[in-house]
């Protein structure tokens, strides 16, 4: 319960009304994920694999660090502040901006964290909302595990 309160406080601090698509900078976050994990002719990416749905789901769980929630949105805010036109940039411009962002310690840490959560969304059990139709596993010829999860987060919190 305490964590929920903290989470809400964090989001209020960020100036949001609810934890969903109404978040400020959530579009920056989504756009960044879609750039890091594009859908190509060979590979399903962030959009096709439901990364944003995944993040929304796992971030609500008590096992997700509240510091990470803050860090992820704070990074998106900083990117938006530094590059207000990021959302309308074409992919080559976005690439240039993100590579520049990577040159700072904080920017690199934020991007590596997004890559990590993107890989969780792509390669984790589909029960969490990502890895839609196991396409993430299929991207790389990974054999689905047996047994797969019947409830998210094990028995205890399922």
């Amino acid at each position: 319960m305490k964590r929920r309160v903290f989470l809400l406080a964090t989001l209020v601090l960020l100036g949001v009304k609810s934890f969903g698509s109404g978040l400020p900078n959530h579009r920056v976050l989504v756009a960044t994920l879609e750039h890091l994990f594009p859908t190509t002719s060979r590979f399903a990416g962030a959009k096709a694999l439901g990364f944003w749905g995944y993040l929304q789901f796992v971030m609500r769980h008590p096992s997700f660090s509240s510091e990470d929630v803050h860090f992820v949105f704070e990074g998106a805010k900083r990117l938006a502040d530094e590059y207000p036109l990021f959302l309308i940039y074409a992919p080559p411009q976005k690439e240039m901006v993100l590579r520049r962002f990577e040159e700072t310690l904080e920017g690199q840490e934020w991007l590596s964290r997004l890559l990590y959560y993107g890989l969780e969304a792509m390669l984790g059990d589909p029960i969490y909302g990502g890895n839609t139709k196991m396409q993430g596993w299929r991207n790389f010829g990974h054999t689905p595990p047996k047994p797969m999860a019947k409830t998210p987060f094990g028995k205890a919190c399922g």
Partner: peptide, 8 residues
């Protein structure tokens, strides 16, 4: 109850 859920 056990699964091969890497995230969990």
């Amino acid at each position: 109850d056990f699964s091969k859920d890497e995230i969990a």
